[in-house]
Design a protein around this nucleic acid. Structure first.
Lengths: 361, 361
DNA sequence: CCTTAGGTTGAGACCGGTCTCAATTTGGGG
DNA sequence: CCCCAAATTGAGACCGGTCTCAACCTAAGG
């Protein structure tokens, strides 16, 4: 019986009130559970609501309270399992607090990101979780905060912006990667990332508060530590397209003194670099060693299993959500998730066969 | 100069009207671009809006028009690259029409799905794209439609429900898989899927309008065609957890007459099945042949490269979005994306070595 | 010069909730 | 039995837009 009558129009508080024979205000209180309501009115209203198939209109609710029950999530590429998993963490955490997730994909494009933030702000989302694609152009994020909306940064930070930021500390793991490679005998170590920068990488270049900065720094520190000479030209950024990545690989692999090891900044990069390596008929690890960031299942199943740096992506998502909820005034259970990256050695790293480079150390 | 003053309170149409010295109605018309407005008023209002940093309140807009500019997407598992990619297609298509995506993850749980649809309906989303986790319990979807909200089904259909459904036709590809395996000499062919059903699979069991139904049917048809005896007991469903999957693999691989080939229903299943195979020290394809649905990059990079059935996941997402937009009264360019699956033969299928089974054919 | 159609304008109702405030009812203490 | 505080109730403003409607203005047609 609850099925037919609502097809025409949704029942409203006023409808329920009329049916229950009480005032709109009382019905609203009973339904919303917020004022003082007598037992009798309560049951009357509940019954009427049931009968009418009443469903509260979130839009109206958000409108009056000025705050919606949804949070905006802005990522560069949902296709990337990294964000998929993080999104899951966010989603799981936020659901319990009664929020829904509005997702926007930016294709790692700043203009899209700015538009997305605008749009979400106009939708009056309660807060934003953003994986910013630039560490410098951030006026849209500041403006969001100025509007009184909570903003949490994810994956990448922005120096000088007083925003909660959830990111993994890669300092230790990155140093470990550098040491592993150096100890194994590598001197020409490539790094490939899709992070966008204006110019080619140079020593001391400011990469912002990005994981890439940590990771490149770790390698450099390992070199310094070992007293070896590091070639920053082997750091290839801007590998955002297949072509760009192919070019980067060409520069690393097809020169007189090729890289003997390559570090892949994420699993998508790794996938493509592996493709490039395969195309050239190079063997891993005999001809080239490979280390990748992000430990997804397939990295263990390929031949040889990949040496990777694992990071708690799901937990990062959860942690970002919790940070946001805290900002929104929710009392979030105090459990603090550890966000540490760690190296998992498998079989894609071995000594370079043709040690075309100087002895070192 | 547009930066400081809005921090206190968002400017409203009324504010803009006051600043421009016109009525609220005129300001609204100028801003919304909908009534008749003179040049003079227009420029006056625009200027005032600019000065105040006016941002329209989507919530209020949606509230009065009764329809929001967001669409709900309900999927079982965003972590699955399948949905990640589809989501991207949806997102790309829908963005141009001015909609945003509200995403809910259900963990393939019916109760969650029902709650999600409720919640999204309450948020007054313009429409829903749902990958239903059940082909039978669908009253929530009917009710959504009854409320006048557009609903498009994704991946899985529901018989008897008059809802737009976007799914790939696997009939041909599935038959091809069956033939390939049979021609190669396999008679004991396993199938592993995470689809939930009440009981173990039996011949003729109704799997609804699901891809799994198509695929199992294809294999059975190939057997019939070849006049061989098919063992339906090798179809393992409900592999929703690691444990369940391990159990399924045990039943397939650890028995007297083990399966000589296994078909994996999606890339996540494939990943896990591969893990199980590796753990047992079985070689592919010498000891066991493998075919997987969904052609993701890693399937080509493992040793041996996997024989897979590719499906246009991104296009499916786009097509679902277009179907929804059409329902919402948008004139969507008529381009119809072809949604065909096709077999890609690589190297994970070969003849069974120990043909423990009858000659056949 | 009057009529009429059409463009322009402002007042105010409306959407469906929340919330304030004053009025009414209830109940316990003196 | 009266008084005052607390609980309950209803009227109506409000949020920020959209939209109807009537009034006004202008210019073309007769």
């Amino acid at each position: 019986m609850t099925k037919r009558e609502q097809s025409a129009k949704e029942a409203t508080v006023a409808d329920v009130a009329r049916a229950a024979g009480v005032s709109k205000a009382q019905a609203a209180r009973a339904l919303g559970g917020y004022g003082a309501v007598s037992e009798q009115v309560l049951s009357l209203v509940i019954a009427a609501a049931e009968g009418l198939g009443y469903r509260p209109n979130q839009l109206a609710k958000s409108m009056t309270t000025g705050r919606s029950n949804s949070i905006g999530v802005v990522v560069g590429d949902i296709e990337n399992a990294h964000f998929g998993l993080a999104l899951r963490g966010i989603s799981d955490e936020v659901r319990d607090a009664g929020y829904t997730v509005v997702l926007v994909n930016t294709d790692e494009d700043l203009a899209n990101e700015v538009a997305a933030v605008q749009e979400l702000l106009q939708q009056r989302v309660a807060g934003l979780i953003v994986a910013p694609c630039s560490s410098t152009d951030t006026s849209h994020l500041e403006s969001a905060q100025a509007h009184g909306r909570a903003v949490v940064l994810f994956d990448r930070g922005v120096r000088g912006l007083a925003l909660d930021t959830v990111r993994v500390d890669f300092a230790d793991a990155a140093l470990e990667v550098g040491r592993l490679l150096l100890d194994t005998g590598h001197r020409r170590i490539g790094y490939v990332s899709s992070q966008r920068v204006k110019a080619a990488y140079q020593r001391g270049m400011d990469l912002g508060l990005s994981p890439v900065a940590d990771r490149v720094d770790g390698i450099e520190r390992a070199f310094t530590e070992a007293g070896s000479e590091w070639d920053p030209a082997l750091v290839k950024l801007n590998a955002t397209s297949d072509d760009a990545l192919a070019a980067a690989c060409a520069e690393l692999l097809d020169q007189a003194e090729p890289a003997t090891a390559v570090v892949c900044s994420d699993s998508l990069i790794a996938l493509r670099v592996l493709g490039q390596i395969k195309r050239r008929g190079l063997r891993i690890p005999e001809d080239i060693s490979v280390v990748a960031y992000d430990d997804f299942a397939w990295t263990e199943l390929i031949e040889p299993p990949l040496t990777v740096v694992a990071q708690p992506v799901y937990d990062m998502g959860r942690e970002a959500a919790r940070a946001l909820l805290r900002r929104l005034g929710h009392r979030v259970p105090a459990e603090q998730l550890p966000l540490r990256a760690h190296l998992i050695e498998r079989a894609s790293v071995s000594a370079p066969t043709v040690s075309s480079t100087l002895p070192g150390r």
